[in-house]
Amino acid sequence: MVRLYEAARTLKNLETPTDVARALNQSQQTINNWERRGVSRLGMIEAQKHIGCSATWLQTGKGSMTHDPSIRTANDTENGLDERMRLVLEEPDIKPQAVAKAAGVTPDAVAKWLSGEIKTITLDQAVGIQEAFGYSAVWLIMGKGAPKAVVFDDPRPKPPAKKETRSPKKQTEPSDPTPLTYIADVTKYRPIPVVGRAQGGLPDRIWTDGDYPVGATQQYAEVASADPLAFLTPVVGLSMIPRYNPGEFALVEPGTEPELEDDVLVRLNSGETMIKRLLSKRQGVRLGSYNDPEVFTFEPGDITWMYYVAHPVPARKIKTRL
């Protein structure tokens, strides 16, 4: 958030968090959440669009602060996602099947990207391609900036080095030793089980128990979470796109108290279970979606439990126990 506020002041003369929220079309609660948890990836892209700062600079602090959409590199394309996909597949070692696997889609979807029938790509799909082949997710989504993402050192803990007989040279202190809040604590990665099903809209009955969801499957994912009760649940339905896409999984943390504008997994006394956004707790619990204007209002007594949903997990992360 320090870099976001710096860019807002420098590029748009925005002095307060309220000014930043208004410029990004975000609620004040979302800005407060970013201050505690770090700016989300979608938030960085929105800041790049509305404030003019580089999403890469926001995430890493490296490169230029500014993002000028009028400045295009030789590899940038104005012809859309189909041209960008063709550029990716020009590399002899990258095949359409590999792109499909990295993005978590079918080969038919890749063919539709190439033909122009599908003109957009989701953030998680783009990040999957970036992780597999190094192409920038921002470039894949928006066609802006350099096609290849900047590669940084693996943040995972390294094994301790062997002791040397000579004294090691004194290391220079980094200019910003404080870790960014939005980088997951990789020391907390552990197997998180997949439990039940969740639906973006109002679903059918899913779980019949009235307590902590049971019936964990043989599936799991290595995910960072400090909540010992954390679990993953599959997502179906369309009302939470683009935040949660069908086929993905949601990381649920029952030990975290949800706040306004948070995503939540809600269990009703009727047995219905859904993923929604928590909009209000006044005059009933009001729940909404990302792409549907309809708001659902429930009395507190109608809700069995309501758990905080941290973030989506791509299907490619899911493993099966042998």
Rank of each mutant, 00 (worst) to 15 (best):
R3W: 10
A8I: 06
R9T: 13
T10E: 15
N13L: 06
T16C: 03
P17W: 08
T18I: 02
Q28E: 05
G43D: 07
I45D: 08
K49H: 12
H50V: 04
I51V: 10
C53Q: 07
S54P: 05
T56I: 03
W57V: 10
T60I: 09
N75M: 11
E78K: 12
N79M: 09
L81Q: 14
R84L: 12
L87Y: 10
V88L: 14
L89M: 04
E90L: 03
P92F: 05
Q97D: 15
K101I: 08
K101V: 08
A111Q: 15
S115K: 09
G116L: 02
I121R: 09
Q125I: 05
Q130I: 02
F133E: 05
S136W: 01
V138A: 13
G143R: 10
G145R: 03
V150I: 13
V151Q: 15
D154S: 11
P155K: 12
K162N: 02
K162Q: 11
K163W: 05
E164K: 15
R166V: 12
R166H: 13
K169L: 07
E173P: 05
P174Q: 02
D176S: 12
D176W: 09
P177E: 09
Y182A: 12
I183P: 00
T187F: 10
T187Y: 14
I192T: 14
A198S: 02
Q199V: 00
G210K: 08
D211R: 09
P213M: 01
S225G: 12
A226V: 08
L232I: 05
T233Y: 00
T233E: 00
G237T: 04
P242C: 13
E261M: 15
L268I: 09
L268K: 07
L278T: 00
L279G: 04
S280P: 02
K281L: 10
K281F: 03
K281A: 08
R286A: 10
L287F: 04
G288F: 01
S289Y: 03
Y290T: 03
N291A: 10
E294Q: 12
T297F: 06
D302Q: 15
Y307T: 04
Y307K: 03
